[in-house]
């Protein structure tokens, strides 16, 4: 049943066994084609395997399941060097969450739009408290150096 499959999926995900996890998501999606959580997990697995092309393809081929996965879509575009597309995806999102703002900062840095990038970093740093604060300040230093 689905509950057992999700338990198995959760286990493989926690172990970083993304091959097995994808197989389980496929089983769930065969039984329940509209299951957004299983689909989300499948996309996460593909990204974790650095298969950004396939992740973006499944997102684009399943618009009924992917409408809320704008962070994942933009992240794939960013890693595929479709940086302008990534920025469009981010800016088309209403009420972007902190994950999207974080990615927006990275996208703007890649686009060498340093003034906007600085604004985004200041906002993200102000509104986060997690394990990445040191890395964020390193990135902020790179932005301010680029503005000199």
């Amino acid at each position: 049943n689905l509950s057992a499959l999700f338990t198995e999926l959760n286990k493989h995900g926690q172990n970083g066994d993304y091959d097995r996890a994808i197989k389980v998501t496929n089983k769930i999606l065969k039984a329940a084609p509209g299951d957004k959580k299983a689909f989300h997990c499948k996309v996460i697995c593909l990204i974790q395997q650095s298969d950004f092309r396939q992740a973006l393809k499944v997102l684009q081929d399943n618009s009924n399941l992917s409408s809320e996965l704008t962070f994942e879509k933009a992240y794939c575009q960013y890693r595929l060097n479709a940086v302008r597309d990534a920025l469009s995806t981010i800016r088309d999102t209403i009420n972007p969450d902190i994950k999207l703002k974080e990615l927006e900062g990275q996208v703007l840095y890649r686009l060498e739009e340093y003034e906007d990038c600085l604004d985004v970093y200041r906002d993200v740093i102000k509104n986060t408290s997690d394990d990445y604060e040191e890395e964020r300040h390193t990135n902020l230093s790179a932005v301010t150096a680029a503005l000199q």
Binding site: F71, Y75, Y132, T138, N139, A142
Partner: peptide, 21 residues
Amino acid sequence: KPLFFDIAFNHVEFPSLEDKV
């Protein structure tokens, strides 16, 4: 080239499956 981290990758995470298991 200055150091610049891909912090966003850390946000690529499974959603909570608590309501599914």
